[in-house]
């Protein structure tokens, strides 16, 4: 816990991947889940004597109980979900250490989700303990609102706890002399922009949404909503606009202004191009992170590859990557000559 207090002033090269900020963020992602699991366990033990044999675990319209399961199963599932989620998000937060922005969002998301889940499970336990029998247990909708409200509060409180994004080492050297450059006059300014598509993801999105249709017809439209919404989201996020300019490298969905991933010029040590095989290099499509590298991988083939000042790699699959990389090298040189950027 020492590192929590010490902040990022440590003398051990605080910018390192597992530096204090990284540890702090992993803790932000993990600790709330562990605490929520502890609270759930404590509440369970204190009300265990009053719980029905098969407590209500699902509540339908109006908060009325309509699903039941064994006591042990309820506790086991609750603890497994909370601790499993903590471990998963902690691991993901650690792996995202080369991209501080998304890492912070993920850690905070983990904290908020743990609070919401913990709240709801506790509310369910208390409702069962209060009720005469399981079938009369009710969890009013206000509990869900409270759960999400407190999750939002905790997430908001955890945001600053994540610490400032690690800054690039001051002595970061720019691109080597041999790296490709784009000849640019002093009075010239340039920007590169291109839409990077995926052939796989729109199909996945369309199939997911299409799977929602029969579900909607047979089981009612509310139950098809998750499929339809996630299908639409996948299709929406399948295309990305990649921009290389004086602000650095920016990737946004081509059909929406956010989420936005930006790598500022100061964090780019060198830009190049490479060929990416989504399965072999990143284990799939989308926003990927593997040890030492992360990136937005929407297809195989040509990709911009940035060597960051942290030493890790950031990859975006897009056509004509060589031009973008050359421009980024030129602009990175320029940003290092004039520290305020060009």
């Amino acid at each position: 816990m020492n590192s929590l207090v010490k902040g990022r002033s440590g003398s051990d090269g605080a910018e390192g991947p597992a530096g204090p900020v990284g540890v702090r963020r992993v803790l932000v992602a993990v600790v709330p889940s562990v605490l929520a699991a502890a609270v759930v366990l404590a509440v369970y033990l204190s009300v265990a004597g009053r719980l029905p044999d098969r407590p209500a675990t699902h509540f339908g319209a109006g908060g009325k109980a309509d699903g039941f399961s064994g006591r042990g199963a309820l506790l086991g599932t609750a603890l497994a979900v909370l601790l499993g989620m903590g471990a998963l998000l902690g691991g993901l937060t650690y792996r995202l250490r080369s991209t501080p922005g998304p890492q912070r969002a993920l850690a905070v998301l983990g904290a908020g989700t743990a609070v919401a889940l913990g709240w709801i499970i506790t509310a369910v336990l208390l409702a069962n303990a209060r009720a005469e029998e399981a079938s009369s247990a009710t969890v009013p909708g206000t509990q869900a609102a409270l759960a999400f409200g407190s999750a939002a509060l905790v997430a908001g409180a955890c945001w600053p706890l994540c610490g400032r994004d690690p800054e690039a080492p001051a002595a970061a050297s720019g691109p080597v002399a041999g790296a490709a450059r784009l000849a640019l006059g002093d009075a010239e300014t340039a920007g590169w922009s291109r839409v990077a598509g995926s052939r796989v993801l729109p199909a996945v999105g369309a199939l997911t949404a299409a799977a929602g249709l029969p579900v909607g017809w047979t089981a009612g439209w509310p139950s098809a909503l998750p499929l339809l919404v996630s299908g639409a989201l996948i299709a929406l996020l399948a295309g990305a606009r990649v921009t290389a300019d004086r602000r650095g490298l920016t990737v946004t969905p081509s059909l929406a202004p956010w989420p936005r991933v930006t790598v500022p010029l100061e964090r780019i040590a060198e830009a190049g191009r490479r060929t990416v095989d989504p399965w072999r290099d990143f284990g799939g499509w989308g926003y990927r992170a593997v040890p030492g590298a992360s990136g937005i991988v929407l297809r195989s083939g040509d990709a911009i590859s940035l060597r960051l000042t942290t030493g890790s790699e950031f990859v975006v699959t897009v056509d004509d990557a060589a031009t973008a990389a050359a421009l980024l090298n030129t602009l990175a040189d320029r940003a290092r000559r004039t520290p305020d950027g060009g």
Partner: peptide, 10 residues
């Protein structure tokens, strides 16, 4: 595609 503008050009 690459957009480039020269601020000193007429």
């Amino acid at each position: 595609m690459l957009f480039r503008v020269d601020l000193s050009s007429p």
